[in-house]
Every structure is written in C-alpha cells, then in structure tokens.
Amino acid sequence: MTLVKFANGNNGSALKPWFNDVFDSVFNDSYVADRLTSRIPAVNIAESESDFHIELAVPGLKKEDFKINLDKNILNISAEKKNETTPEGKKYNRREYSYSSFVRSFTLPETADYSKIEAEYVDGILKVNVAKREEAKVLSREISVK
C-alpha cells in the first residue's frame, strides 16, 4: 500500500494538488535551493608522519580570491569572487550577477607547528599543508621481546 500526500484545500481541478506537490518538491528542492543557498566547498583532511593536509575543492577561483588567517589555533580559509563585467552596447531584460563566497574554519591540534603553514592553489584544489612539531612526529623503532 502506498500513501500519497495531497495538499487539501486547493480549489480547481483534481490534478492540481498532485501537480503542485510534484513540481513544488522538484523545483524548490533542487533548482531554487541550489541557487539560493551558499555553497561550501568539499574538504579532504589527511595526516602524514610530518604534516596535516587540508584540500578544498574550489574550482573557478584565482589564488588572489583566497584569504587564509590563523587566529590562535583556528585556521580560517575564505574566498570571495565577484563578476561585475558590463559589456557596452547591450540592453538587458534580465541579468543574474555572479557572486560567491565561503568561509571554512578548522581547529588545529596542539601538535601543529603554526609557523610552518603553506598553501597552494592548483587545478581548482586549494592545498594547505600544516607541519607537525618535531616532538609530535611519530618515531618508529623496533622493540625486542625478552
């Protein structure tokens, strides 16, 4: 048995409640919601023996668009891009401006060396490497059994 939810109280044809429910969910959930909400880039965080690696997927930006700050142990990565070109000689009936921004914050562990943070932007990926302190690096040795 399948239950179908209809919006009661709509005047008009018998298809109108079904029509409204289907199209409201399709357009509002995917198209409108994607256009109105801010996009936060996906992130990968990895750890090696000597570094922490943070990678953000941010295609379409330039390295000048990024701002990276360190406040105590919190690493803030933000970007802002505005596209305000106005070609001459064109009359617009409708024009959508291109503007995007985001802020991501990461709490760095105490083992991070705050003076050795490097960032690089290559092929739409912002790579931030945070070195570990010398005393925090994993020392490996073999332990003999007695």
Rank of each mutant, 00 (worst) to 15 (best):
N28F: 06
S25Q: 14
K72W: 08
D51R: 09
S25V: 08
D21E: 14
A46Q: 15
N20H: 06
R94V: 15
S98H: 14
A46K: 14
T107P: 06
W18P: 00
D51P: 00
V22D: 00
R133V: 11
F27N: 07
N11L: 14
L139F: 06
S25K: 15
H53I: 12
S105G: 01
L61D: 08
A33D: 15
N76I: 09
N8V: 10
L108F: 02
K137M: 10
A136V: 07
E47T: 07
E64T: 02
D51W: 01
E135R: 12
Y92N: 03
T85R: 14
D29Q: 14
K72P: 00
F23S: 03
E142P: 00
E64N: 05
S78T: 04
S30G: 06
E134N: 14
K132Y: 02
V138K: 15
E135H: 10
V43N: 07
A7E: 13
Y31N: 02
P59A: 02
V130T: 02
R39T: 14
K67Y: 05
Y31P: 00
A119L: 01
L75D: 03
I68H: 03
Y121K: 04
S98M: 10
K137Q: 09
E64F: 00
E47M: 08
L36M: 12
R133K: 15
